[in-house]
């Protein structure tokens, strides 16, 4: 368990003392430190506004930390040059809650845009991508079960289908790390189960490291190796998913001052580092 938590010899991600204060004064992240080893499936949980999305956006340089360092694939993202940053981003797939598809473009074009990091120069329209990439994009659409919709506009699809196109775009990137920011929060229960299953199947088949934020605790417990809980920008739970009960996890969602209570019960050894920080 220790190895899982602290990472092996070669952690894929390491955050040291990361804090983020937005220009409007909100402290979104407060001294977050953690490492993620290669191949781990990690689930971030916490209330809306607890800093989950902000943390994710630090991992591919969409946000820069106010303090601390973020290292991904050994590159310090916070101070990387724009070329280094592009290299990092190319290897980090990002799946968003709102899909981030271009509604007016066809599904195929949307998938192809995942290859932009590999290409030089601007592209516009299917014809501007090499034929090999077009074939590849078709394969990825097939993998998510949407090849028949290849030439349909993305905004004609259902929510679940759109998220599957977004997943195909991510596969197109061939990333080592997959970040999914509440990927199924805007979907109905049935499609959210399907989409999440697809996402994890693809990620494990392609040996990606995964960080996903989820609201559905039972889903998170079901498949994740490790659960990290955030509250007000601080890590309040960081544990192996095995041996963790749903009630333990639910504590993270308690809005009122149950934090002290949670920390006071030494039910799990992993709560120790948090207690230390709390005392300091």
């Amino acid at each position: 368990m220790t190895t899982v938590l602290s990472g092996g010899a070669d952690p894929l991600i390491s955050l040291t003392g990361v804090s983020k204060r937005f220009p409007n004064g909100t402290l979104a992240l407060d001294n977050v430190s953690m490492t993620v080893p290669k191949g781990q499936l990690l689930s971030l949980i916490g209330l809306s506004g607890s800093g989950k999305s902000t943390l994710m956006r630090h991992l591919n340089g969409l946000h820069k930390p106010t303090a601390g360092t973020v290292k991904v694939f050994g590159v310090e993202v916070s101070s990387a040059s724009s070329k280094q940053l592009r290299d990092v981003r190319r290897n980090v797939g990002f799946v968003f809650q709102q899909f981030g598809l271009v509604g007016r473009a066809t599904c195929l074009e949307n998938v192809l845009s995942g290859a932009l990091g590999r290409l030089r120069g601007p592209r516009y329209g299917v014809w501007s991508y090499p034929r090999t990439l077009r074939r590849e994009a078709f394969d990825h659409l097939e993998r998510v079960g949407l090849a028949p919709q290849a030439y349909q506009r993305a905004d004609t699809l259902s929510g679940g289908q759109m998220q599957r196109v977004a997943i195909a775009r991510t596969i197109m990137q061939q990333p080592q790390l997959l970040l999914a920011d509440e990927p199924v929060a805007s979907l109905d229960p049935e499609s959210s189960a399907q989409v999440l299953e697809l996402l994890l199947k693809v990620a494990t088949e392609d040996k990606m490291t995964v960080i996903v934020t989820l609201h559905q605790v039972e889903l998170a417990l079901g498949w994740a190796h490790r659960i990290v809980g955030l509250r007000d920008g601080r890590v309040v739970l960081d544990q192996d998913a095995r041996g963790l009960s749903q009630t333990d996890v639910m504590e993270v969602y308690r809005r009122v001052d149950r934090e002290s209570e949670l920390l006071a019960t030494p039910s799990t050894p992993a709560a120790a580092p948090i207690t230390e920080r709390q005392r300091a």
Binding site: F99, E109, S113, G114, G117, Y124
Partner: peptide, 20 residues
């Protein structure tokens, strides 16, 4: 949203503008 998504794939600034 789509702009943030395509930027996240490692696309350059102009590639992103043209694609999204």
């Amino acid at each position: 949203m789509s702009r943030e998504a395509v930027t996240s794939t490692g696309a350059g600034k102009w590639q992103t503008v043209l694609a999204t």
